[in-house]
């Protein structure tokens, strides 16, 4: 009867590991705060908002242009990916013949699995030269938006498809019984019914776009300035961290950690909203 009372120690062991893994979040947050402290204590954080430029070596820490750039990229990418993604989902669920549908789904999964650095490489070598022909310098807000769109499209499409599939069959049958055309069934009944699921997928995509580093670092041009034109090179918050961590020291380094902290809080807020919506969709 060797392992008769093994459950007790195993249970304690497993729980300690679980607590340890839960503590990772605390560890991540506390190290971010610790490293960022010189840049945020005693009201130092105000300079992030007040300073009108990012010259960390001269003590100027205005990150608003980079926040705006990150937001502009994200919003632009969502504006493109939402209609494309939702119509892809509609295609997948209602229009695609069975074999085409499974190939299409496979393709979306493949697209989702491509490393972001490869999107960056492709964007830099294929997309940017195309934009240059239109308007220099090529590396720009537009390039970042397009690459991000490609990256978040699968997320939007796959979560929307899941939400559409989850719409109760009776609702579809009811709409068909009313004599609605397929288009009206989809636009008036199905999309509204799947709304929360789709929005929660979009929020996840927003979080991914905001947190993305490599792809935007490689194609956006990385000039710290307000995003005033689609063709202007801009620098995202994430890209800034990746670019300057290598040589940052002192308050500069703290400033980078502070921007990482800000980014994390933003993304956590979005993830929390998405999960609220998901549980709402499950209940209702």
């Amino acid at each position: 009867m060797l392992n008769k009372h093994i459950d007790k120690p195993v249970s304690v062991l497993l729980m300690s590991i679980a607590v340890l893994c839960g503590l990772i979040l605390l560890l991540v947050l506390s190290f971010l705060v610790k490293e960022a402290w010189p840049a945020i204590n005693d009201g130092a954080w105000r300079s992030f908002l007040v300073d009108d430029a990012w010259y960390p070596l001269e003590g100027l820490f205005g990150i608003s242009p980079m926040i705006l750039a990150s937001l502009a990229m994200t919003v632009g990418a969502i504006l493109l990916a939402l209609p494309l993604g939702v119509s892809s989902a509609i295609f997948l669920v209602f229009y695609a013949p069975a074999p085409v549908g499974s190939v299409y789904r496979l393709m979306l999964n493949l697209l989702a699995g491509i490393p972001s650095v490869i999107y960056g490489l492709w964007g830099l070598t294929k997309l940017v030269p195309l934009i240059v022909q239109w308007q220099a310098p090529g590396v720009s807000l537009l390039a970042a938006i397009l690459v991000l769109t490609l990256m978040i499209l699968p997320t939007v499409a796959l979560t929307s498809a899941a939400a559409l599939t989850a719409v109760p069959q009776e609702l579809i049958a009811g709409a068909a019984a009313l004599g609605l055309t397929r288009k009206s069934q989809i636009l008036l009944v199905l999309i509204p019914a799947a709304k929360t699921g789709i929005i929660s997928g979009v929020l996840l995509a927003v979080a991914r776009a905001l947190g993305e580093t490599m792809a935007v670092l490689m194609v956006a041009g990385n000039v710290v300035q307000n995003p005033t034109s689609l063709f202007a090179p801009v620098r995202a918050l994430t890209a800034n961290i990746a670019l300057e961590m290598a040589y940052a020291t002192g308050t500069h380094r703290a400033g980078l950690f502070a921007s990482g902290l800000l980014l994390t809080l933003l993304v956590l807020l979005l993830a929390w909203l998405a999960s609220r919506l998901r549980s709402q969709a499950q209940r209702g």
Binding site: I24, L25, V28, F31, L32, G211, F257, G260, L268
Partner: peptide, 20 residues
């Protein structure tokens, strides 16, 4: 907390990994 960790951007893991 695990779900929250899932959402943390990878560059932030980079910062954390460097510091920790």
């Amino acid at each position: 907390t695990l779900d929250a960790l899932t959402g943390v951007p990878s560059i932030v893991y980079g910062l954390f990994g460097n510091a920790f």
